[in-house]
Design a protein around this nucleic acid. Sequence first.
RNA 1: GGGAGCUUAGCUCAGCUGGUUCAGAGCAUCUGCCUUACAAGCAGAGGGUCACUGGUUCGAACCCAGUAGUUCCCA
Length: 878
Amino acid sequence: MEIPKTYDPKITEDKWYAHWLKNKFFKSIPDERKPYTIVIPPPNVTGVLHMGHMLNNTIQDVLVRMKRMQGYNACWVPGTDHASIATEAKVVALLKEKGINKTDLSREDFLKHAWEWKEKYGGIILKQLEKLGASCDWDRTRFTMEDDLSAAVIDVFIDLHNKGQIYRGVRMVNWDPEGLTAVSDEEVIHKEVNSKLFYVKYKIDGTADEWITIATTRPETILGDTAICVHPDDERYKHLKDKRVIIPMVNRSVPIIFDTYIDLEFGTGALKVTPAHDINDYNLGVKHNLEVIDTIAANGKMSEAAQFYIGEDRFTVRKKIVKDLEDMGQIVKVEDIKNKVGYSERTNAVIEPRLSMQWFLKMDTISKPALENVLNGEIKLIPEKFVNTYKHWMENVHDWCISRQLWWGQQIPAWYDNKSNTVVCRTKEEAFEKLKLKNSVIKIEDIKQDEDVLDTWFSSWLWPISVFDGFKNPKGKDINYYYPTNDLVTGPDILFFWIARMIIAGYEYRGVKPFSNVYLTGIVRDKQGRKMSKQLGNSPDPIELIEKYGADGVRVGMLLCAPAGNDLLFDESTCEQGRNFSNKIWNAFRLINGWETDVNAKQLDANKIAIQWFDTKFNEQLESINDLYSKYRMSEALMASYKLVWDDFCAWYLEMIKPEFVDGKSLPIDKETYDATIVFFEKILKVLHPFMPFITEELWHLIKERNEKDCIIVAEWPKIKIENKVILNHFEAVMEVVSNIRNIRKQKNISPKEKLQLFEKVNQGDVIKTYDSIIIKLCNLSSFDYVHQKVNGAISFVLKHAEFYVPLSQNIDLEAELERLTKDLNYNKGFLKSVQSKLANEKFVSNAKPEMVENERKKLADAESKIKAIEEQLAGLK
RNA sequence: GGGAGCUUAGCUCAGCUGGUUCAGAGCAUCUGCCUUACAAGCAGAGGGUCACUGGUUCGAACCCAGUAGUUCCCA
């Protein structure tokens, strides 16, 4: 069979994915093995795969595959999130294209459209994950708005309400005028923008021409002012005690209040107070019992209460009112400043602080265990630096606004009668029974359910419990077996949104953590360091990348540039490197596959040694790879595997055992060496499998006849053998000889085909001839002999233990040799000097650890003998 | 405004308990090779004041203080 020179992912990926599915290798059911569990951070149901998903799902798959091979019952639960505000926004936009306004639809009709949309686009992202090779147990796929999960959300709401943890009240919330809903503090993104600071003068009430000047960035809110506030210690305004001022345009008289909240330095030291449209002003209003005039409606346009500009947008009004005030002569000056403005995470609209009736979850007590157990290490955040951020947030946590003025989501199970009685329960019938106790004449038709839905995170915070039916069936087999889960892999941007809240819910509802380790990936940025986003159009399409480089190539590329916890600057070239690596492995297979074996051939000494060496090397590297995995240093584990394969296996081992080529044909290889090589190849495929599932599965089946079930995905992870590592040290010396001779070839322009002679003069230690055959082969030598005297007319080099001579057919360049040896001599003399001065330092000798001093003495001796050898050679040349 | 982190080769990053001439890896670059598995390859080479300034120490990329730049979080 002709095997192509390059690896083609297209013919393997779909084939093996289907094969794995068919054989149910991803499927997990509780058994006697230890579980290893990951729940996927559920992507937005209508979303498409982006680079961030690529990164964290690759990491999850690597972990799951490795644990599966290590004998754990590995279970990776996939699913999607209903993402209320984002999805609703998309549905609204889609309807608008069709000429339908949301406001013209009933709740039921709208939800019908939304479900249609979900059915149509809901599966895309999960299908894309399959392309990546994700080994999720697809039979367990969940959706945060499916019946069981919604029921859990409602139960939790009712339970927390009964416990007194949920309350309803009028509070200042972050209002998204685009999405027409409240959003939580976490959903507001503060950005620094260039603004103008307007200095506006207000007339003191009862005076002819006495004024006070305030500074504001939001003049459109002037119409809602109900006070002016100054600092009690401010000399400039002491005389204004008990005075009132006139609000421009509306001509309302409002008090001047005094409060230490005021920053004397900012603006004029006088603040206009608009309790309806600023959180700080609101707090001042509460404290000083001020009137609240809500001048901006839910859609960001001026309300009736504003009296002017009614129905016009707040930003249009900002310009207009400035002009009008200018005409009235009340603008004193305008300054450019930078300030922070809050934007909605979902719609990017400027957030309007707004008073409204919302539901809140008290966070102070419920969050305690979640803080404690991260601080004491029961739950590990990786990298650790996030513990600080987490701690800070948890210690300053605010009550969580959980109601959203949307339809797509779980409707709040609160019921009202016509006399403002409220009950919280599952059904209207229950509500009727309960309300009857408060209002005996009530009719069931008079009962109305709260219009709002719950924040999406109020369902996803239950995810690790609800995907195992932990609410429906708290003593169930699944929840008992899989919970707490092991690792959670996600981005730090949702540390508070999601991770913290899952931990809270875990302790509240299971009394146990939801997961043991949280691996926080970096954020994927482009080469210029910008976050990849749709708006910027700087994100490559992951599916296109997979087509170009293969899923294995992209997985490797992704991880190569992903140091734990740091943002990663993604560059397509690392995917190319990944693809090249696939090809390297492919060709290693082609080489081995092309060998003929000879059962009668005697095993060469060189091969025997090579096998011993690689066996030891493999174990050493495996140990290190296992260790890196345990520390979640994924990119380093990958790099160690990469070097093990490329350098140790391909560049050294295969070169050492490669049969000689005679008359255009490779000689047969002895059976023993061949078999050992196959075993090694299987081992390295196993180590690579978590990173590169497709090519390793393909080669696993090409290297040996296997039955359908014998797949690498379920093969056993290699075990560590204890080996004598002395051979590794010996090999260091062998490699040094080899690289010196290659260097000579390069410098002297000698073809690798030309055979050379090599002589060794041993200076110290025993003569070890074990490796001679290897050196002969790797250096293409005609002979390798030991001598007692230096060889004249030869190029030489000096290693720690010996001197080497390579006679050349061409004349040696005396000048060049002198220069080279002198350079080497100087280097060693410098080294010697530094060691000598260290040893001459009495404080070093008396304070440093004895091993340290001993080591220095040894270095001294080595350097001295080496210098002696070089000097002799130099003398010989002259 | 408050807090946390980062700064090591052209790029992306390792460097653990201060100790080997400790300054490293991968990529990129340069040079030479279509050598018989792989040019998506092989062989070789160059490249850094470890941000800066002080301090502690026999010894500092590493510990401490300050400065600058930068990123993130919170308000």
